[in-house]
């Protein structure tokens, strides 16, 4: 749920990065953090295990500037991708405004992608959301790997509703901001309708 504070003239939106384990959700956030100027960002919080696997969530607040006199702030979260952290994933989807699904382009991970997509749909439903209605974008990550399968094929298997889809290499930043911008736009357009 977007939180609009009329008194402080602030608007806060929550965007969640979803996807299977090791697909690059945290890497997306890390890139955004590294490339944003210091005034616009807060601390990147990473609740991870000793081996850098996300345990609960990563969190990055991002100030985008003003729209119609309102300070616009996006809160970016990632979920832990590993299958057994499902209870945590569900919690993080609470109050979500937009979702970015990060898919792993390696052929061996396709099954995990599909499974995570269904898991997203189910967990959203449990929180009272419908993936068909939520602002949503698909990111095909790790396009640089030799084992990456064709983007068309991934699109066919993973695209849910014709959502904006981006090819990306999160390690080097390709496609990272494009994906974020597209969802941020969808979220703001959603506000317009309300």
């Amino acid at each position: 749920m977007t939180f609009i504070n009329y008194a402080a003239r602030e608007i806060n939106c929550k965007i969640v990065y979803y996807g299977p384990g090791l697909c690059g959700k945290t890497t997306n956030l890390q890139w955004i953090y590294d490339k944003t100027n210091p005034q616009a960002k807060g601390k990147l919080i990473s609740l991870a295990t000793e081996t850098d696997r996300t345990l609960f969530f990563d969190f990055l607040p991002l100030d985008l500037g003003q729209v119609r006199g309102f300070k616009t702030r996006f809160h970016l979260y990632t979920v832990p991708g590993q299958v057994f952290y499902d209870a945590s994933r569900k919690l993080i989807l609470k109050g979500v405004d937009g979702v970015i699904f990060v898919a792993d382009s390696q052929e061996a991970r396709m099954e995990a992608n599909v499974e995570a997509r269904y898991n997203l749909e189910k967990n959203l439903k449990d929180q009272g959301y419908d993936l068909a209605a939520v602002p949503y974008a698909l990111q095909l990550n790790k396009r640089d790997l030799p084992t990456a399968i064709a983007a068309d094929e991934m699109y066919r298997q993973l695209n849910f509703k014709g959502e904006p889809t981006f090819e990306a290499v999160a390690m080097s930043g390709t496609g990272v901001f494009d994906t974020l911008k597209s969802v941020a736009k969808l979220v703001l357009q959603e506000l317009k309708k309300k």
Partner: peptide
């Protein structure tokens, strides 16, 4: 009235 009712694509673009 929501202050975002009249938000334009340009407004959104300018954020980025």
């Amino acid at each position: 009235e929501s202050p975002f009712a009249e938000i334009t694509d340009e407004d959104i673009d300018s954020l980025f």
